[in-house]
């Protein structure tokens, strides 16, 4: 029992910190913070680049879509113009013949 009490007392007894312990702890904390900051900056940069690439791809797709759409509209206009003109010519000839 005495042995146990002695062990407990030793364990709970205040011990002096080794010299420079506090400085080492602060240095370790500072280093850890610095590493985390550098890592965070790289992650932010990568995310920004990814977002930029996504935005650019979306913009390019929209531009290509618009160009193709406008071209299709112009072709449609031309096709309808030819169709209407030919039909009108035929209609006019038929009317002329009837008269």
């Amino acid at each position: 029992m005495e042995d146990f009490e002695r062990q407990l007392r030793d364990a709970l007894a205040r011990k002096e910190q080794p010299p420079l312990f506090e400085a080492k702890v602060f240095a370790a904390i500072a280093e850890s913070k610095s590493k985390r900051w550098v890592s965070w900056r790289w992650e932010a940069l990568a995310a920004s680049l990814l977002a930029l690439a996504g935005f650019w791809a979306q913009h390019e797709h929209a531009v290509r879509d618009r160009v193709a759409g406008e071209a299709a509209k112009a072709r449609l206009q031309l096709a309808l113009k030819i169709t209407v003109t030919e039909l009108s010519k035929i209609q006019r000839t038929v009317r002329t013949t009837e008269e």
């Binding site: 209407v84 010519k89 002329t96």
Partner: peptide, 8 residues
């Protein structure tokens, strides 16, 4: 599309 006159 031009308006086409269908008159004689």
């Amino acid at each position: 599309i031009p308006k086409v006159d269908t008159r004689k």
